[in-house]
Structures are given as structure tokens and as C-alpha cells.
Design a binder for these strands. Structure first.
Length: 281
DNA sequence: TCGTTGGACACTTGCTCTAA
DNA sequence: TTAGAGCAAGTGTCCAACGA
């Protein structure tokens, strides 16, 4: 069946759509499709397909909204938590001790530099900007291995890009990257877990308004860098370890929820894509 | 010798312009 | 209107020179 036999110009089509919602017209999107020849299912089947796709679209819309709401919620809660407007209480309903201004050098240290016996190009790390974390570097073909010194990094270490720390290039090395390598421009620091919860520290630092300010401590006239020793001189407001743990658990739970909704949204989008392909092939 | 530094480089991403 | 080309800016290191 030629589309022009059931559709006219877009303007008329719109009128027909609004007047005859039960006609064959509401099955198609807007556009000049009169030159195409397509198989047209019977009207009841068109209605079933259209209503099913509308339901999928509604679900995608709901998940998108939910994702945005959760992201905004996390941002607001973080602002309140780290400005201490919002405080947790201990198991007995008592206030936690007051936060103390502490220098990072009391909580973290520069580890001994260990060079690998050989440089494995499949074990090089890269730290992405804007809180995208640490990843395996897959772009190593152009590297002249041996020209740059690499050092062995361990899981749980804080890793950052010296030149991009203030652009959100930092993370905690996950288990799967234990023993991987990075250059001196991507250094690591050991966190003393008896004094600071690594997840808490990552959340503390991951406020854009906070890490952007760190540009002021970068040195160098060409490429501005923040050295390990300079970074360790930073003062942070530190709660007690149990409160750090509570804050970290709470924010991690929100992150998990956001990740779940993002996954559901991706699945819904993929489902719709696959469905459209199968329906209209 | 080793750490720091300035600048170079390769690649990616995003924007603008142009031609079909 | 849209696809593709060209360009600029951003990104993530790399590398050689320099100084302690």
C-alpha cells in the first residue's frame, strides 16, 4: 500500500490525526512519507502496536525523570552534608563529635615508588576527567615504551592526574587494576584507612565547586600541575570515622540507585530499538 | 640520578561552514 | 535540510631539558 493513499501533506495529516484518532493515520510519525511503500497491518493491530510503543515511551520518560531527580537529590544532600547543615546521629541517637580541620598529610602518604621489571602496555592506567574514574589505557600503540618511567600502583590507592586534578581527574584504584602501572604525571597516594574512609574522601573531593578551586594550588607556567606534596598540604573538614562511614554508605546507596535506574533506562531504550526493528522490518 | 617542568604531540570531540 | 569537511579546542599523556 502506498502511504499517499492514506496520508496527505503534513498539515492535513495533523488535522486528520486529531479528528480521526482511530484511523490508520495515527500509526505513523510526521513527515513526507508519501513516496514510500510499506506493508500496512490491519487497524486493530496498528492500535495495539501504537499503544504498546506509547507505553514503552512513557516508561523511558519516567526513568529519565527519575534519573534526573536522583542526581539532583544527591547533589543537594552532598551540599548539606559537607556544609554540616545535615548531620547523622550514632546508634544511640547522639550527635557525632564536631568535625576537625585536618591536613591531608595526616591522613594520606606518598608510597614508595616501585618500578616494574618490564612495562606491559596492557597494564597502563588512565584517569578520565569529570569524575569518570580510572580506566585501563587502550590507546597504547603510539607509546614509546621505555621513554617514560612507570610505577606499580595498588588497589585502594588514591590516583590523580597532576595536570587535571582540578578537572575531576581522580579516583580510587579498584581491585581489578591492582598491579597496573601509571607514569609520574599520574601519581598515587596511600590512604590511612584507620583515619579516613576512602569512599568518604572521594565524595568529599567530588564536589565540582571544591575540586575546581584546587587549580589555585597548581604550579607551573606551562602545564599547571599539582604535586603530591602540595596536595597533602590541603586542609579538609574531617568528621569522626563512624560518621565518615555513615556518610559514605548513604551516598553510595544513592549512587547504586542512580546506577540501577540508568541501567533500567538503557535496557528500556534498547528494548524499544529492538522492538521497532522487529515490528517494521 | 631523580624529580620537576615546559612544551609538544596524537587523538577526540564539538562547532561552523559549505555544498548537494 | 542534511551530510560531510574543515577547523579549533580539549584531553591525556610523552619527552627532553634542567636543577637539586
Amino acid at each position: 500500500m502506498y502511504l499517499k493513499s492514506i496520508m496527505s501533506s503534513p498539515i492535513i495529516e495533523k488535522q486528520v490525526l486529531s479528528q480521526n484518532s482511530g484511523s490508520a493515520m495515527n500509526f505513523f510519525g510526521i513527515g513526507d512519507t508519501s513516496k514510500f511503500k510499506l506493508p500496512i497491518p490491519p487497524l486493530p493491530e496498528q492500535q495495539k502496536i501504537a499503544s504498546f510503543l506509547t507505553a514503552v515511551d512513557t516508561k523511558i520518560q519516567q526513568l529519565t525523570q527519575k534519573q534526573a531527580l536522583l542526581t539532583d537529590y544527591k547533589k543537594g544532600v552532598m551540599q548539606q552534608l559537607f556544609s554540616q547543615q545535615l548531620r547523622f546521629q550514632d546508634e544511640n541517637g547522639q550527635e557525632f563529635p564536631a568535625w576537625e580541620e585536618t591536613q591531608l598529610s595526616q591522613l594520606m602518604s606518598i608510597p614508595k615508588k616501585m618500578q616494574p621489571a618490564e612495562i606491559d602496555s596492557n597494564k597502563l592506567l588512565t584517569v578520565k576527567l569529570h569524575l569518570k574514574g580510572v580506566l585501563k589505557n587502550n590507546n597504547t600503540e603510539s607509546l614509546t615504551l621505555g621513554a617514560t618511567n612507570y610505577f606499580v600502583r595498588k588497589k585502594g590507592q588514591f590516583i590523580f592526574g597532576k595536570q587535571n586534578l582540578f578537572n575531576g581527574a581522580f579516583s580510587i584504584i579498584p581491585d581489578e587494576f591492582d598491579g597496573f602501572l601509571s607514569s609520574g604525571d599520574i601519581p598515587v597516594l596511600d590512604i590511612n584507612p584507620g583515619k579516613m574512609n576512602p569512599s568518604f574522601f572521594l565524595f568529599y573531593l567530588s564536589r565540582e565547586s571544591y575540586y575546581k578551586k584546587l587549580e589555585s594550588i597548581a604550579s607551573g607556567s606551562g602545564s599547571k600541575r599539582i604535586h603530591e606534596s602540595t596536595f597533602l598540604g590541603i586542609l579538609i573538614d574531617l568528621p569522626s570515622l563512624p560518621e565518615q562511614t555513615k556518610i559514605a554508605s548513604f551516598l553510595t546507596a544513592i549512587d547504586d540507585k542512580i546506577a540501577l535506574v540508568t541501567k533500567q533506562l538503557h535496557h528500556a531504550q534498547q528494548f524499544k530499538k529492538g522492538l521497532l526493528q522487529q515490528l517494521f522490518v
